[in-house]
Design a protein around this nucleic acid. Structure first.
Lengths: 285, 285
DNA sequence: GGCGATATGAAACGAAAATTCCATCTCGGT
DNA sequence: ACCGAGATGGAATTTTCGTTTCATATCGCC
């Protein structure tokens, strides 16, 4: 109880303390220290009894271990191990606090915020996107005669980019841009053998949803890029991607969506090179 | 207890089931479903009482939620959420080397590359953008009667986004989209007192350059977003931003440009709040 | 509008877990 | 070898938490 110097807030700090004081600890406490460094996951999630069993020590030693490092019991220390699981934001993390200090209101601060939000969104995209979803989506696109792309309002730039990039690949594509309010007519151009990429965020544009429903009814495979697992696009989509765009001041970024879009296009290009069955020549307007 | 069809072993499966059955669940269970999808970390680590508090439901509903998906109570389901934390992606460092080794052109590798490129582009943007350039650009925009936006081809999505975002600010704006090949005619709408945002990358679209020249001749201030200090837009621009978009496989990202665009818009919004002289009402189509 | 079924919330229950207490053990110093 | 301080393990204790039960509310249906 004498050593109440160090509460230790982050996992990295605690890890350092355990390493440093390891030699000075009693036998059981050393045992626990080694186990803790080697199995941080179990330290975070298991119960005292289970950990004691695995580490071959008595349960009460675990409480003493926590106390030895300034915690108020084992559970108190376990919170630090748990925090490691939650905010595993590998490369970033500490950089954030440096910009927190900056003053508010300037445009430079807005830029900082958006850069930060963009990086977050990208890392989230990387960590949460399942590789097989990408593969399946690319497979769908590789088989499609014509790739239709639909999005409205905030999501529209993503569709515009997709149409441009698919054109660069010599891939027939069709941007349903609702020009002249003729979205429904444009949607009639979708035929069996085609595919549809739909991008929509909350509040989901009803026009986009209509197009998706029509495609679904016609048996056309749908690749959805949306922002929520409960999005109305989800149940209709053959492959769905969820991008979480962190927002700043009510403005959401498109960073992650565009990154995903590019990855789809480049992945498609690679797939077509590998199996160059029918490369189609003409890009549609 | 009747629905004992589905044990659900992995987090991804559970997530899919929650999404699928969301509509068919009762009100409280839907509430929990949404919370669970949005806060998987808390679902994994917090206690029943804490989660119930955060999700604004009664603790017992959480047990029912678990039962509804075939689990034997809440703790049983929580194991699945915890598994997600344990066997997560190894985290940045290891991820990179696995990408270095297995670079056989899968789509996941393309995604990793784009995420990395995007992060680099954003950091470069943050480090190289001069704060006073932002301030001056925002000042120009704040004084403008109508903000015209022009971009073609690859840069067009940036313009589309700018037009959307400026509209959200109730800022009069005009997207010169070259619809019907009438870009020159659209450019005639520019009048003294307006401003122009032009976005163009190599190879610089001649149409865009034409518009910029015309604006310059008419004494309309120009904000340029471009990719090179030698860009033809540079000498004509009142304020110029240089964004370096790192490219992957001949595809350049728009990440940094969009981030800059958002920062301009939000900065403009803040500036207008601070000195709310004439807030204009109507956004142009 | 009433009735049954289902959903929901409050409280009680029981189990499990963390922590404390205390007796015993270990070991270093004299 | 003895003594004492600290370490250790077993068991008791107390707290916390998950779950169950039951009364009430809500909703859909006839």
């Amino acid at each position: 109880m004498e050593k109440r110097l160090t509460p230790a807030e982050t996992y990295e700090d605690l890890r350092a303390q355990i390493s440093a004081r390891h030699g000075a600890l009693s036998r059981r406490l050393q045992q626990i220290a080694e186990f803790a460094l080697q199995h941080p996951n179990e330290m975070a999630l298991e119960t005292v009894a289970a950990i004691a069993e695995r580490a071959q020590v008595h349960p009460s030693s675990l409480i003493r271990f926590g106390n030895a490092f300034g915690f108020d019991g084992f559970s108190d220390m376990q919170r630090v191990f748990r925090s490691r699981l939650v905010d595993r934001v590998p490369s970033y993390g500490e950089r954030i606090k440096s910009l927190r200090t900056a003053k508010v209101g300037g445009a430079a601060e807005a830029l900082d915020s958006f850069v930060e939000a963009g990086i977050r969104a990208l890392e989230h995209l990387r960590d949460e996107t399942r590789p097989d979803s990408l593969e399946r989506a690319i497979d769908v696109l590789a088989r499609a005669q014509i790739i239709h792309v639909v999005a409205q309002r905030r999501a529209f730039p993503v569709a515009a980019y997709l149409a441009y990039a698919l054109g660069q690949l010599d891939r027939r594509n069709h941007l349903l841009d609702n020009l002249g309010g003729m979205l429904a007519e444009q949607a009639r151009a979708m035929a069996p053998g085609d595919a549809l990429i739909a991008v929509s965020y909350k509040p989901y544009a009803p026009e986009t949803l209509e197009v998706v429903k029509r495609a679904h009814g016609a048996g056309i495979p749908i690749i959805a890029i949306t922002d929520n697992p409960l999005s109305p696009l989800m149940p209709l989509a053959s492959v769905a991607f969820e991008v979480e765009e962190s927002k700043v001041e009510a403005f959401r970024s498109l960073t992650a969506s565009l990154c995903l879009a590019m990855s789809l296009v480049v992945g498609l290009g690679q797939a077509l090179e590998r199996r160059p069955k029918r490369r189609l020549r003409k890009g549609a307007a």
